[in-house]
Amino acid sequence: MVPPHAHAHGPASPHPAQPAPWSILRMTGLSRLAAAIAVSAGLWAIVWLAMR
């Protein structure tokens, strides 16, 4: 009898890599910079709201 969710790797080996839907490493430099600025602005907005 086979269990409903059989693993395809041995118990001592890690899970195989899953394909990522997106990766920051595949973004262009300008896109990475824009994402970093957006995240930074969002975090500063949280700080600004907390200080009010």
Rank of each mutant, 00 (worst) to 15 (best):
M1L: 04
M1F: 06
M1Y: 10
P3T: 02
P4W: 01
P4E: 07
P4M: 00
H5C: 06
H5Q: 04
A6L: 09
A6Y: 01
A6V: 01
H7L: 12
H7T: 03
G10P: 07
P11C: 01
P11S: 06
A12E: 15
A12N: 09
A12W: 09
A12H: 07
S13F: 00
P14Y: 02
P14W: 10
H15T: 12
H15N: 13
A17H: 12
P19E: 07
A20Y: 02
A20T: 09
A20D: 08
P21G: 02
W22K: 04
S23G: 04
S23Q: 14
I24H: 01
I24G: 07
I24R: 03
I24T: 08
L25M: 01
R26C: 00
T28K: 07
T28H: 03
G29S: 04
G29P: 03
L30P: 06
L30S: 05
S31Y: 00
S31L: 02
S31D: 14
R32C: 13
R32V: 08
R32S: 01
L33K: 10
A34M: 15
A35W: 08
A35V: 11
A35D: 13
A35R: 10
A36N: 05
I37H: 06
A38P: 07
V39G: 03
S40P: 00
S40T: 15
S40C: 06
S40M: 10
A41Q: 08
A41R: 07
G42A: 09
G42C: 08
G42S: 15
L43P: 04
L43M: 15
L43C: 12
W44P: 00
W44H: 05
I46Q: 00
I46R: 01
I46H: 00
I46S: 00
V47H: 08
W48H: 14
W48I: 12
W48M: 03
L49P: 05
L49I: 10
M51S: 10
M51V: 02
R52W: 08
R52Q: 10
